[in-house]
């Protein structure tokens, strides 16, 4: 999986791994927007460059096996990677693709990844990631979920 340096267009390889207890010392609200310590009872993953411990994005997930669904509770990119002057692009996309891989790995053709964003940003996720709205919930299922994985899960 790769992210793109916006200033040069260079691709950089990344890995997404579970957040460990020590990581929470560096995950501040100032840089990562939310109080991530409260999420430590859930599955939280960090995105970082290979050979670097600097966390560029975070996602918190909840598996709901009875509904063949993985729900994204929180998602963020670090402060320097948001807005017009972001250092790297595709961080959020890679994090969503990671959730999609877990969903496919668990539930195959029944897999679903859901989000419940604020109304003003829902449109972005529908357009960019082809998520479908059902009331306040956005979801991505087969076949779009396979396309999302293929879009991001490569070198």
């Amino acid at each position: 999986m790769v992210i793109v340096k916006t200033s040069t267009g260079e691709k950089h390889h990344i890995v997404i791994t579970p957040v460990n207890t020590n990581d929470y010392k560096t995950i501040t609200k100032k840089r990562y927007f939310f109080d991530w310590k409260k999420e430590n009872i859930f599955e939280v993953y960090k995105l970082h460059l290979i050979n670097s411990n600097d966390i560029l994005g975070l996602i918190s997930l909840q598996r709901i096996p009875t509904e063949w669904r993985v729900h994204v509770r929180l998602l963020t990119v670090s402060v320097e990677n948001q807005g017009k002057h972001k250092e790297f692009a595709n961080i959020a996309g890679n994090l969503l693709a990671h959730a999609a891989k877990i969903a496919i790995s668990e539930y195959a053709e029944l897999a679903c990844v859901s989000l419940r964003p604020k109304t003003e940003i829902a449109k972005h996720y529908m357009e960019k990631y082809h998520m479908i709205a059902t009331g306040l919930t956005l979801s991505i299922e087969v076949p779009e979920i396979l396309n999302l994985i293929n879009r991001f899960d490569h070198d």
């Binding site: 927007f33 939310f34 709901i64 509904e67 669904r69 729900h71 994204v72 509770r73 929180l74 998602l75 963020t76 990119v77 948001q82 807005g83 017009k84 972001k86 961080i91 959020a92 679903c112 859901s114 989000l115 419940r116 964003p117 604020k118 003003e120 940003i121 972005h124 996720y125 479908i132 059902t134 009331g135 306040l136 919930t137 979801s139 299922e141």
Partner: peptide, 29 residues
């Protein structure tokens, strides 16, 4: 903030909200 990817808080505000939205989503799926 104008970047829609800066962060998403997607937590259900209550168990009732989760249940009703989960039912609707499952029906649609």
């Amino acid at each position: 903030n104008t970047d829609p990817e800066f962060g998403v808080d997607s937590r259900y505000p209550s168990k009732t909200a989760y249940q009703s939205e989960a039912t609707a989503l499952m029906e649609a799926r």
